[in-house]
Design a protein around this nucleic acid. Structure first.
Ligand SMILES: [Mg+2]
Ligand SMILES: [Mg+2]
Length: 424
DNA sequence: TCGCAGGACAA
DNA sequence: TTGTCC
DNA sequence: GCGA
C-alpha cells in the first residue's frame, strides 16, 4: 500500500475512473503529458539550471517510447504487468518504473502536477501548438510575459505564417471528417491532371492510416513516368498552387512556391546558390484551404514516380512510426527518407554519410522487405512497437540480437547482388 | 559520454 | 545557420 | 531518460 493508505492500486483505479478512462488510458495520458511538456521546453523555460536541463527533445522522445510501451498493456494492468515493461520494453528503465510505482500508489505523478501548477509551463504548452511557434520562440515569448492566444495576437512581431494561422485558429482546431479529405484529394487530382495528365493525387497522413477524423490533410502528387534525373516534378507546385487558388480551394499560403528569396545584399554570387534553386523549384507546399465553409490545413507534395514508394511511406506516417523505422534502417546500415533508401555508414561523431546509391523501390512492402521488417498496413503504423524485426517476429527495439545489423544486408556488394536494381 | 530521422522551407 | 514544420 |  502507498502513502494514502489505499492498497492494490486502488488510488490509480480511482484516478482513472474519475476521468472516465481505463487504467491504461489514464497512465498513457500522464506520460503523454510529460512528453508534451518537454516538447514545449519544460526545464528550458526556468532560469534555474536544474538536473537534466537542456535535454527536452530527448525527453520528449523518451516519453514517446514509454507511451508506446504503455499502449500495449491490458486495460487494467496489475503491478506485475506494469513492472514487467521495465525489463521487456526497450527504452523503459528505472526512473520510469519509479514513476509507474508512484502512479500505482497515489494515482498521480508529482512531475505532472509540478508542470500543471506552473503557469509559464501551461502557457508554453498552449502556445507551441501555434504554427510557426516552436520550442525556441515559445520559451522566449513566455519569458516576455505572453500567456494566452489573445496575448499572442497583440504582438506586432509575428511571422506572416503565424498571423495567417491565427486568423483561422478556431476552425483549424476542429477535426476534419474523413469524407472531406477524399473530396479535396479528388478536386486537387482534377486540377492536377488539367495541368499535366501524368499527375495523380493520393491522400496520405492519418487519412491513409484509416482514421475517421484528421487534424490536417496530406495530399501527394505523383508525376507518372518521371524517373531519376528528371526535375520536371519540381515545377509542378508553382503551377498548381495558383490554379487551386483560382478553383476556390486554397485561401492562404504558408509557403510560397516560386517565390524568389529576399536578400539584404543581392549579389551575383548568391543567384547561383542552392537556396535559390530550392525556392524556385519546390516539392513541398503548406497552406490553408476551405471545405464546406471551414478552413483547413493542407500539405501538398510532388514526387517523380520512381520515388513514389518511399514518399508514400513517409507521408503516411505516423510521425513516431517514421522515426523508429528510420532508426531501424540505420541499425541495418541504411538511411531512409521520403527520397529513397541507401546504404550509409557512420563517419565522424554524429555524422552518417551515404555509402552507396539509392535502391530501386517498387512498393512500400519492398522497403520493409529490404530492411527485414514485417510489413505493416498503414492502419498499424503507430509507434515504436509497430516496427517489427521479421527475422525474429519481435519488436525491432527489443533485444541485443534484433538490433544487430545483418551482414547480408549491410554488405553493399552482396546487397547489390540481391537487389541489382540500384539507381543512380 | 554520446545519440536520439531526415529533409524542406522561411528568414 | 537557426527555427520550424511534417 | 535510456541504451550502446
Ligand atoms: Mg508550433
Ligand atoms: Mg495529417
Amino acid at each position: 500500500g502507498g502513502g494514502t493508505g489505499l492498497g492494490g492500486g486502488a488510488a490509480l483505479e480511482d484516478a482513472a475512473a474519475n476521468q472516465g478512462l481505463t487504467v491504461r488510458a489514464y497512465i498513457v495520458d500522464q506520460f503523454r503529458k510529460l512528453s508534451n511538456a518537454y516538447r514545449a521546453g519544460a526545464d528550458k523555460g526556468t532560469g534555474a539550471r536544474m538536473h537534466g536541463s537542456g535535454r527536452s527533445d530527448a525527453r520528449e522522445y523518451h516519453y514517446k517510447q514509454v507511451c508506446a510501451a504503455l499502449e500495449h498493456l491490458s486495460d487494467s494492468p496489475d503491478w506485475a504487468e506494469l513492472e514487467a515493461i521495465g525489463t521487456q520494453r526497450h527504452g523503459v528503465g528505472g526512473k520510469t518504473i519509479a514513476k509507474l510505482r508512484e502512479l500505482w500508489d497515489t494515482g498521480r505523478l508529482g512531475r505532472v502536477d509540478e508542470f500543471s501548477n506552473n503557469p509559464e509551463q501551461v502557457a508554453r504548452e498552449l502556445l507551441i501548438k501555434v504554427h510557426g511557434i516552436g520550442q525556441s520562440r515559445v520559451v522566449e515569448l513566455v519569458r516576455q510575459g505572453v500567456r494566452t492566444i489573445s496575448d499572442l495576437r497583440q504582438r506586432t512581431d509575428l511571422s506572416p505564417q503565424t498571423s495567417i494561422w491565427l486568423k483561422y485558429h478556431d476552425q483549424l482546431e476542429q477535426p476534419i471528417p474523413r469524407d472531406h479529405i477524399g473530396e479535396v484529394r479528388d478536386r486537387i487530382g482534377a486540377v492536377a491532371s488539367r495541368i499535366d495528365p501524368r499527375l495523380k493525387a493520393i491522400a496520405c497522413g492519418s487519412y491513409r492510416r484509416g482514421k475517421m477524423e484528421s487534424r490536417d490533410m496530406d495530399v501527394m502528387l505523383i508525376l507518372r513516368g518521371a524517373g531519376p534525373g528528371s526535375t520536371e516534378h519540381l515545377e509542378v507546385m508553382a503551377r498548381i498552387v495558383p490554379e487551386l487558388h483560382a478553383d476556390g480551394l486554397l485561401t492562404d499560403d504558408l509557403t510560397t512556391p516560386g517565390k524568389f528569396p529576399q536578400f539584404g545584399k543581392k549579389t551575383a554570387a548568391r543567384v547561383t546558390t542552392p537556396s535559390v534553386v530550392q525556392a524556385e523549384n519546390s516539392i513541398a507546399y503548406m497552406g490553408i484551404c476551405i471545405v464546406g465553409g471551414v478552413h483547413r490545413r493542407l500539405d501538398l507534395r510532388c514526387y517523380p514516380e520512381h520515388q513514389e514508394a518511399p514518399a508514400l511511406l513517409h507521408f503516411t506516417g505516423s510521425g513516431d512510426f517514421n522515426r523508429f523505422m528510420s532508426r531501424a534502417a540505420n541499425a541495418r546500415g541504411f538511411t531512409l527518407s521520403e527520397l529513397g533508401l541507401q546504404p550509409s555508414v557512420i563517419k565522424g561523431p554524429a555524422e552518417r554519410v551515404p555509402s552507396g546509391p539509392h535502391l530501386e523501390l517498387h512498393s512500400e512492402a519492398h522497403i520493409f522487405e529490404i530492411l527485414r521488417l514485417e510489413y505493416k498496413d498503414p492502419s498499424e503504423r503507430r509507434d515504436k512497437i509497430d516496427v517489427i524485426d521479421s527475422t525474429t517476429g519481435r519488436p525491432f527495439f527489443q533485444t541485443r540480437e534484433s538490433r544487430t545489423a545483418l551482414p547480408a544486408l549491410t554488405d553493399t556488394s552482396r546487397l547489390q547482388a540481391h537487389h541489382p536494381a540500384a539507381i543512380t
